[in-house]
Structure formats: C-alpha cells, structure tokens
Amino acid sequence: MEPIRVEHLCKSFDGKPVLRDFSAVFPAGKVSALMAPSGFGKTTLLRILMGLELPDSGKITGLFGKKQSAVFQEDRLCRNLDAAANIRLVCPGLRREEALRAMESVGLAGCAGQPVRELSGGMCRRVAILRALLAESDVLFLDEPFKGLDAETKQTVMQDTKTRCAGKTVLLVTHSREEAQAMGAVQVLAMAKLAAAPGRQA
C-alpha cells in the first residue's frame, strides 16, 4: 500500500490563507499525528484529504480508490436511529449482534437500542468512534476523536481504537502528545511550523 503524499497544498477562505504550501508524507498502515494550536488548518487538511474541500493548489496522491472512514470533530450521528443502527448504517454487512459485541468493548453495553438523542455526550462520542472503526476502510481520519471523554473511558477507548486501527493508515488530529503516543503514532507533525514555512517537507 502506497503512502499518502501531500505536496505544496494551499487553501484559503475569503482570501485568508489557512494552509500555505503544506507538504507531508503519511506512511501506509501507520498512525500519523497532526498537532497544532486551533485555527492552523488541521481540520481543513483532513477535509481536503476526505474530499470535502478542494485545495486552491497542490497535489495529493495515494488516496485514490481507498476506502475512508472518519471521526469528525462533531459526532455526526443520526438522531432518529439507535446507537447500533448508527454503526450499521455505514457497515451494511455488520450484523446487529456483532455491533452489540463491539459496543460492549467500549462500555456501551445496554444502550445499543437507545436512540442516540437519549445518550450522553460521552456515549455519543464512543458510538461515533466505533462507527469509524467498524466501517470497512483503508484510511482513517480521526479529528480530535477522544475529546469529551473522561480519563478512564479515554484509556479504554484509545486501547480499543489502537487495536482496531492496526494495519490501517491513520491520520490523528490531537492537541495531546500523550494521545499520539498511546495510539502508537510513528510521526508527530507540528502543523503550525509546516503551514507557516513555505516548501518545507515533513
């Protein structure tokens, strides 16, 4: 599997540059972490890689034909469906029993049949994470996936995430170096410097 290469990527909104000449290589089958203060273009970079935004210029290779899944900054769950149905929405082949077993592993046993509008913020977050992990994918985009989880739950979920991500190309956006380490990131890119330094290669 080839790595994802980003070359000289530029993106601005209303004339305000968010990404300037950003280049990086994300090794295939490994976890890469992106760290930067808020507003430095981490989410914009992920959105471009996911195909939700078009860059102003630059080149991306290594993503064509690859199945993607994501944990967005927001949970983005269907409020009308229950937790298990939200997971199965993106995994058509997954049986309900399999979804329930996976939910048990992150402490969501017993709330599979509840509509997500009745779940707490932390529970919704775990459903969103599990949805991304169970979806058939080659590349995973995780945008601050563990925010809003208490310390104990975060440890359990991070461990589960790491196990389920094995062999996949993962781009993890985080503010915490500990999270990056716990996820076994092979590289940590400090995006603020990259975005501000034209032409620099990670």
């Binding site: 993607q68 994501a70 967005f72 927001e74 983005r76 993106v90």
Partner: peptide, 15 residues
C-alpha cells in the same frame, strides 16, 4: 454535516 458523513463513508443513495 450528516450528508458529509454519508459522503466520506460512501453510504449508497438508497440508504
């Protein structure tokens, strides 16, 4: 946001 999620996960039109 839900439609973007559907796009990323490539949820088929009927679903």
């Amino acid at each position: 946001q839900l439609l973007e999620m559907a796009r990323v996960f490539r949820i088929p039109p009927l679903r």
